[in-house]
Design a protein around this nucleic acid. Sequence first.
DNA 1: TATTGTTATACTCTATAACTATA
DNA 2: TATAGTTATAGAGTATAACAATA
Lengths: 162, 162
Amino acid sequence: MSAPSVGQSERRSGALLEYLARRMRLRSESVLAPLGLRPRHLVALTVLRDAGGISQQALASTLQIDSTNVVGLLNDLEAAHLVERRRSPEDRRRHDVFLTETGASRLGEAECALASAEEEVLGALDPAERDQLYELLRRATSGAPANCAAAVTDEAELDASC
Amino acid sequence: MSAPSVGQSERRSGALLEYLARRMRLRSESVLAPLGLRPRHLVALTVLRDAGGISQQALASTLQIDSTNVVGLLNDLEAAHLVERRRSPEDRRRHDVFLTETGASRLGEAECALASAEEEVLGALDPAERDQLYELLRRATSGAPANCAAAVTDEAELDASC
DNA sequence: TATTGTTATACTCTATAACTATA
DNA sequence: TATAGTTATAGAGTATAACAATA
């Protein structure tokens, strides 16, 4: 490959995101393994740091994974004492999920260890561009994840436009 | 979740990328299904548009997937007449892989159809920011995918720095 | 009756090992 | 002997269906 540009004609970010995320995930795996974490554990911990105390359902919706799989994910993390399930006093069906102190510090270590993975995967970008990318990703992921239902209804119209 | 920021303390893009790519993949799936494509097919086609004629090994290395899985991937795409395997005249062990005209136009349709998925997933970004993101992703993914071996050796030092 | 969480299970994706053919 | 591609197969990851407890 001689300086290839993946996806030029329609300028869609989809394939590029998939491509870059895969590279990052592969490199992250080996860095996270010594900490007993997998990439999806990292994402879950990261979400819980900001949204601690949410229910498993809400967590599933935020992570966009099936709620049945949240069970296993939390079983892993709880067994490692990184998160805690507390039966909600308001609604006894619910479990509120919290990051433990151990979990918070483990997450910090993980993010620290990820420096080398980023170094490699984002090597083509200079520090300023990496900051820019981080900021854009942060803003994009901060966006309301709840607008899915509304957006789906517009789908047909959008498709016709191009 | 009240305007959460996923990953603030160490400012690592890893979890954000994984998170955003997953959202994009999930939305892409339903958009691509009518075209008989899956997200990983799209990535493969996108790479082949720019690097047509490469061997299956090289494709595996570029896509960062195991070469055994390239077989099945290409079987799918070849059955749909989107790519073509040609026995290399120089080295008869090798298959050179090419995007067909059908493949190129199907890829165009797919990218077009992905507009709605992007609209939804990148909804928090304005058009200028989306262009900026696209450009950063394009540059990051254009970087040499061959430097893995070299970079791995530096790993230990980098880890110690933070 | 609807919802939260759980289990069991099937399906997809991916990786490992052994094989064929060319070099 | 080494490399390109293939097959078979086991392991993760994910989704679907049925169930228990609570609302």
